[in-house]
């Protein structure tokens, strides 16, 4: 039946989710571009040699993705097409993002913007930015 119960069955999972949402919502300095849960979701990490950005952009033609680094800011934009709904079809759940998107990440100062590489696999865009050689920690040999 196309029927949603008023009372979810797993109360603990619901409480868990509520708590997580509260934590997100109580952020004292939210981003100027709105909720952190935009599209695409992003993970950012780093090593002493590189900065790695993972953008979760499933179902997007890699050719329609645009990634740019300018003045230490990475901008990722593109468009995700909505699935075509056949005539006389009913949409019961509509949660997936469709439309144009744009996300901006500021990068640290020591990156080498000329050596960026980007790879799209399984719906994830991995942008790998090496740090400048001079900025990498160097071990000093003691004689």
């Amino acid at each position: 039946m196309m029927y949603r119960t008023m009372f979810p069955r797993d109360l603990f999972a619901e409480l868990d989710r509520l708590q997580r949402e509260l934590q997100h919502g109580s952020d004292a300095t939210p981003s100027i571009r709105g909720l952190a849960r935009g599209y695409p979701a992003m993970n950012v990490g780093g090593t002493p040699n590189s900065v790695d950005i993972y953008a979760f952009v499933p179902g997007v033609d890699p050719a329609s993705l645009d990634a740019q680094i300018e003045k230490g800011v990475l901008t990722l934009s593109g468009e995700r097409k909505a699935e075509t709904v056949p005539d006389k079809a009913a949409v019961h759940i509509d949660e997936r993002f469709a439309g144009r998107f744009r996300r901006v990440v500021s990068l640290p100062d020591d990156i080498d913007a000329n050596a960026v590489s980007a790879q799209y696999r399984d719906g994830v865009l991995h942008i790998h930015i090496p740090r400048k050689a001079a900025a990498q920690p160097r071990r000093i040999a003691i004689q």
Partner: peptide, 18 residues
């Protein structure tokens, strides 16, 4: 997910990046 029902059945799309 998106769930779309037409006369012949149901189509479900789910985003599972990574």
């Amino acid at each position: 997910v998106d769930v779309i029902e037409d006369a012949g059945g149901i189509t479900l799309y789910a985003d599972l990046p990574g």
